[in-house]
C-alpha cells in the first residue's frame, strides 16, 4: 500500500477510472434486478434474483472484488482531492467559472454524499438481508427470503425516499462527469468517438438515475 500512495498522478487517475467504470457494471446489474420489483406484485422474480445473487459462489467471490473496487475508487478519490486542495494553498478571491465539465467541480462532494448513502443503504438492505431476519415466501420455484417486501416497506418511509432520491441524483451528477472523464484519463480521446462517448455517458447517467429513482417513487406513491 505504501507504494500505491506514491503512484504518479496519472496512474492514480487510471486506477480510479478503471475502478469507476467497473462500478458502473455493478450499478447496471443492481438496477436491472431492482426494476424487477416493479413488474411483479409477488416479488417472485426479484426475490429469485436476490437469492441467486446471494448464493451463487461466483457472485459471492465477485462481491469482494466489487468491494475492493469501491474502496480503491474512494481512497484514491480522497487522495487526489487532498492533493488538489494542497496544490492551491491560497485561493482566488474571485472564483473561476470556465470549467467546461460542470459536475467535475463537485466530484468529491457528490462522491461523499453517495458514499454516506452507500453506508446507510448497506445497513438497510444488505446487512438486513445477510444477518437480520427476513420473512420467507414460497413460490412454485422454491422458498426465498421475501426481500421484495422489505424494500417496499422501506420505500413507504417518506424521509428515506427523499434521501434516496437526492443521493441518486447526486450519483447521476457524479456519473455524468465520471464516465466521460474515465475515458479521457485512460487516454481515449478521438475527434469522432469522444463526442459519442460523452453523449452515451450523459444518457447512461440519466437512465441509471431515473431507473433507480423510479422504484421508490412508484412504490411510495402507489
Amino acid at each position: 500500500m505504501g507504494k500505491s500512495l506514491t503512484y504518479s498522478s496519472i496512474t492514480k487517475k487510471i486506477i480510479m477510472s478503471l475502478a469507476g467504470l467497473f462500478l458502473i457494471s455493478f450499478l447496471l446489474v443492481h438496477l436491472g434486478i431492482n426494476l424487477l420489483i416493479l413488474f411483479d406484485n409477488t416479488y417472485e422474480s426479484f426475490n429469485t434474483a436476490a437469492h441467486f445473487m446471494a448464493t451463487n459462489p461466483l457472485i459471492q467471490t465477485f462481491q469482494w472484488v466489487l468491494f475492493i473496487g469501491f474502496i480503491i475508487h474512494i481512497i484514491y478519490g480522497i487522495i487526489v482531492q487532498l492533493q488538489n486542495w494542497s496544490a492551491r494553498p491560497v485561493r482566488y478571491m474571485k472564483k473561476g467559472y470556465s470549467e467546461l465539465s460542470f459536475f467535475s467541480k463537485f466530484m468529491i462532494h457528490t462522491g461523499v454524499v453517495v458514499f454516506i448513502f452507500l453506508i446507510i443503504h448497506f445497513a438497510n438492505f444488505f446487512i438486513v438481508a445477510k444477518f437480520g431476519h427476513v420473512d420467507e415466501v414460497t413460490y412454485k420455484s422454491g422458498t426465498y427470503e421475501n426481500l421484495g417486501a422489505v424494500v417496499v416497506e422501506t420505500f413507504k418511509i417518506g424521509w428515506y425516499v427523499a434521501f434516496y432520491v437526492v443521493a441518486l441524483l447526486l450519483l447521476g451528477f457524479h456519473l455524468e462527469h465520471g464516465i466521460q472523464s474515465a475515458f479521457q484519463s485512460l487516454g481515449i480521446n478521438h475527434w469522432r468517438y469522444t463526442p459519442v462517448i460523452k453523449r452515451i455517458g450523459t444518457l447512461l447517467s440519466i437512465l441509471i438515475t431515473l431507473g433507480f429513482i423510479a422504484i421508490p417513487l412508484v412504490i411510495y406513491f402507489s
Binding site: S9, R88, S104
Partner: peptide, 15 residues
C-alpha cells in the same frame, strides 16, 4: 513539484 491532479474539468483548454 506539487501540481494538482487532472480531473478533466477542461478549464485549461477554455482559458
Amino acid at each position: 513539484l506539487g501540481f494538482g491532479n487532472c480531473t478533466n474539468t477542461y478549464a485549461c483548454e477554455a482559458e
